[in-house]
Design a protein around this nucleic acid. Structure first.
Length: 417
RNA sequence: CGGGAAGUAGCUUAGCUUGGUAGAGCGCUUGGUUUGGGGCCAAGAGGUCGCAGGUUCAAAUCCUGUCUUCCCGACCA
């Protein structure tokens, strides 16, 4: 249970003028994030809670398929990037800096180099494979143009997973498995994704796919077939509206999408350049076969708001809501009703994550703030208290029910469990 | 990095063309009133007008430079 009076959630009546897209306006107005510099944001308590919820889903799903979590440094020495050749190849998007002794470092935009360095001394036999390691970490990219708040930041939170296999077949299996897990994760956090074929870009490798959330504010153009399941990033396919589908000859359509995840079959690019070899069953030294899989956590948050909101309010998907239930006591100046309200808060708080709006504010203020904050279930304690009831609002359906106070726990157990 | 726009109180902004005491709404403080969708009344606090230089008796306003931010494009989780 959290009292709203002590929660730092500075809501705004008006959106700052630099906010353009709906999700940016709402995240700012609801007091979830605050800009610190272009493309750099602070996550305030509510936004942080949502991030942790998303991360929890990501962790659960990854652990379930045998991945283990670790954490690698954001600050990385140039040497490793010289080994892979990416100190030069990555270009100006690599955030570079020097220490006091003039040694070169970068802030990691991704961790292929570090993870390869991490395992190469240890993984010397096929018996130690496969291996799947992931982290959830802040990444840095010196973007030419950050935009739409968390959509394209210069600092952002990403989950990155790396797999090491002793055969192409094993890599294929991981690729498939992670692909399924991604679809499941996005579904759980309330996003419908479409898997599209893509280029491998700077990361390198043989094959790659992206997970796209269809949205007007997306930065990528997706080409897909109206007849079959063919879908690809337009950069990759080169197709355009009205073209013929390369798979079935059907008609191609385009749409905008937000890239929330990507998966790459890296192969041996990093293991060869960085000398990460193992000894196989046949006694031969072979380079580790790698895969890497990114999932934009902060971007997922942004996409979720974009998909689950109106201009004035958010309704968080269950899995990532900052709280389960928002209690709005409207009769705090009536001693009897205030006591009853506090009892309700204690009872519900014992079973659910509850936000209790104990502020001395007028009802209108509480309602508006609650709409912005976006908690899906709301309990209004006001007039109906006289009949021993609470107004329970299911914001997914918009339905309101008068529920006797003693039935509240059971009522929400049905909804939330 | 090219093209466009904007920096005035915590937020939204007026004033700038035509130089002359920096104004409003929201928010904040105090008192009163109100109490189911951002109430009302009264009294307050809060500003190096992004920064630096220049022109001028005088600059938020004109000129130059610079920084920051946003949008479009080229590059990308």
């Amino acid at each position: 249970m959290m009292k709203q009076s002590v929660l730092y959630a500075p809501t705004l009546k008006e959106a700052p003028k630099n906010a353009e897209v709906k999700s940016h306006k709402l995240l700012t107005r609801s007091g979830m994030i605050k800009q610190t510099a272009a493309g750099v944001y602070s996550y305030l308590p509510l936004g942080h809670r949502v991030m942790k919820k998303i991360e929890a889903v990501v962790r659960e799903e990854h652990d379930q398929i045998g991945c283990s979590e670790l954490i690698m440094p954001a600050l990385q020495p140039r040497d490793l990037w010289d080994e892979s050749g990416r100190w030069d190849d990555f270009g100006p998007a690599l955030m570079r800096l020097k220490d006091r002794k003039e040694r070169n470092f970068c802030l990691g935009p991704t961790h292929e180099e570090v993870i390869t360095d991490l395992v190469r001394d240890v993984i010397d036999s096929y018996k130690k494979l496969p291996l799947a390691l992931y982290q959830i970490q802040t990444k840095y990219r010196d973007e030419l143009r950050p935009r739409f708040a968390l959509m394209r930041g210069r600092e952002f939170v990403m989950k990155d997973l790396y797999t090491f296999s002793d055969s192409q077949e094993d890599l294929e299996r991981w690729y498939e498995r992670v692909s399924e897990v991604y679809t499941r994760i996005f579904k759980r956090v309330g996003l419908d994704t479409r898997i599209v074929a893509s280029d491998t870009g700077d990361i390198g490798g043989d094959q790659a796919h992206e997970f796209m959330v269809m949205s007007e504010v997306g930065e990528d153009t997706i080409t897909y077939c109206e007849a079959c399941s063919y879908a690809a990033n337009q950069e990759h396919s080169g197709l355009d509206d009205g073209d013929e589908c390369p798979e079935c000859g059907g008609r191609i359509t385009t749409a905008m999408g937000i890239e929330v995840g990507n998966i790459f079959k890296l192969g041996t690019k990093y293991s060869e350049s960085m000398n990460a070899y193992f000894t196989d069953r046949d006694g031969k030294r072979k380079p580790l076969i790698m895969g890497c899989y990114g999932l934009g956590v902060s971007r997922t948050l942004m996409a979720a708001v974009e998909q689950h909101s109106t201009d004035e309010s958010i309704v968080w998907p269950k899995a990532i809501t900052p709280f389960d239930i928002h209690i709005l006591p409207l009769a705090l100046n009536d001693d009897e009703k205030r006591e009853t309200s506090e009892e309700v808060q204690t009872t519900l708080g014992a079973h659910f994550d509850v936000l209790y709006d104990d502020r001395e504010e007028r009802p209108g203020v509480k309602f508006k703030d609650a709409d912005l904050i976006g908690i899906p279930y709301r309990v209004v304690l006001g007039k109906a208290l006289e009949e021993g009831k609470a107004e329970c609002i299911d914001r997914y359906t918009g339905e309101t029910e008068l529920v006797p106070l003693e039935d509240l726990v059971a009522f929400f157990q049905k909804k939330i469990a």
